[in-house]
Amino acid sequence: MPISGLLLTLNDNTVARSETLAALRARSEFELGDCFGSWLPVAMDAPDDEDSRQLHDWIASLPAVEFVDVVSVHFDDDKSPVTEISEVQL
């Protein structure tokens, strides 16, 4: 049951942005943060690894999304709760 923090780089087409935001808001797996410039932080709660991958691809296919960075992934199984922070160039 991975929970990931994603950073979406959006293009500046406002129409595409509205569509993208609406699409993301419509799905319960996502929680959207506040957009800073071109960057939108998103928390993604996926049922399993495979879904996680598919959702990632789906996000990347949204009209305003130019890039998806994975900031953190939490593998939420009861035995070993590990949070990994990937090295993202700040």
């Binding site: 500046d12 406002t14 129409v15 942005r17 509205s18 935001l21 609406a22 800073f36 410039g37 071109s38």
Partner: peptide, 15 residues
């Protein structure tokens, strides 16, 4: 008028 689009526009302005 669309609240979401305005939201985006205002944040865009803010940058």
């Amino acid at each position: 008028p669309d609240d979401a689009a305005r939201d985006v526009a205002i944040r865009e302005r803010a940058t």
